[in-house]
Design a protein around this nucleic acid. Structure first.
Lengths: 206, 206
DNA sequence: GTCTATAGCGGGATAGAC
DNA sequence: GTCTATCCCGCTATAGAC
């Protein structure tokens, strides 16, 4: 049980500061002194509330990860037909990403550098593979009905995620290449919803 | 001039080892001892060849970055019409990614954590914004001819990159969610070429 | 060129006063 | 609860022998 039910005001302040610093510098790059400074306290106080840097990180990581998928999970597991799921999925992802544009690169990097922790996470959660099977079924239903072309569910999921998430991962690179300001770029991204749904639906046509 | 013209056998061995370790653990997470061990030498020898960890990193980062775009840059800057550029771009990207699937997450993470270094890099290189303008022109040419729908060049570039690169960035996550083995997943990715080109071209239709 | 030994510093964690 | 002072480990880099 890495998370806590009741967090004091001070604990929340520290966790917010920790997320800011961890996202900016990564686990190894962030120091407990950085986090303390960001939270406006001294570093021994960190150890008073959370016993170690590792422990703070686990909580921040867990929360960021859950938030990223909390909008998406209910959609995937739901009983709606595929053509309702797609826009809802895009909406859920984009909403979270626009609010926390720098979180995904942090998550993906940490997952890549220690994938074992991810596996533990999934093992302990409500079965995510069950969700994937449900999504697969809603795809196969449409294929059988002849309303979409034959497509692997995993391919469809990859394409949707790609179009939603990648632009946030590559933000600094794309802004530099195309000489677009941060603000302008975020505006482009916030208008991508119909674009993405359109691309996916055109692709699924027979 | 961060790179070198002539590298000895030993230097190349160290640089390969350094890339392996930096990609796996990031700049802060990698230690000079790790790199030395991976190269089969002792750490003072690293400092004999390259003066510092920072210096080794610059060379590795520079090379990885250049390689990722060396296949793509000539395509973007070329004079072919858009419909030839798109498949060539996808081919170039996928070829590099299949050979070095773990490099992009490393690059993107380092860019995000210190975007200033990226800017320096671009300032010193042959004008990449010139390339972007050329690509834009090949898009606008088709729009004017009425062969494709009206689309912002930056949007098109984002979509192509998303569909090519994201699946590599998210590899551990997607494999875990869908219970697909590494080998099987890479096989799926190596067959994405026509899929991606198809999606982009369908989207550009009037 | 390559090694062993070590200097020197930065960061996580704790002791103990208040 | 919150602080100052400090311990101690691990890491980069260097000194110096071979």
């Amino acid at each position: 049980m890495v998370n806590k039910q009741l967090s004091s005001e001070a604990e929340e302040k520290i966790l917010r500061a920790a997320q800011t610093v961890f996202v900016k510098k990564g686990y190894k790059g962030a120091t407990t002194r950085d986090i303390a400074a960001e939270a406006g306290i001294t570093s021994p106080l960190l150890n008073y509330y959370f016993r170690s840097k590792e422990n703070i990180f686990q909580i921040v990581y867990e929360r960021a990860f859950s938030r990223l998928y909390s909008n998406v999970y209910p959609v995937i597991i739901g009983d709606e037909p595929l053509f309702d799921k797609i826009p809802a999925l895009v909406d859920g992802l984009l909403a979270e990403l626009l609010e926390n544009p720098d979180v995904p690169i942090f998550i993906f990097n940490e997952i890549t550098q220690s994938p074992d922790k991810l596996i533990e996470k999934f093992r302990s959660k409500i079965n995510i593979m069950e969700a994937y099977k449900k999504f697969s079924k809603s795809v196969y239903d449409e294929v059988e009905k002849g309303t979409i072309r034959s497509v692997r569910p995993i391919t469809l999921l990859i394409n949707i995620q790609s179009l939603c998430i990648y632009p946030f991962l590559a933000r600094p690179l794309i802004c530099e290449i195309s000489a677009i300001s941060y603000r302008e770029y975020m505006k482009i991204l916030s208008n991508r919803r119909d674009e993405i749904v359109g691309i996916i639906e055109k692709d699924l046509k027979l």
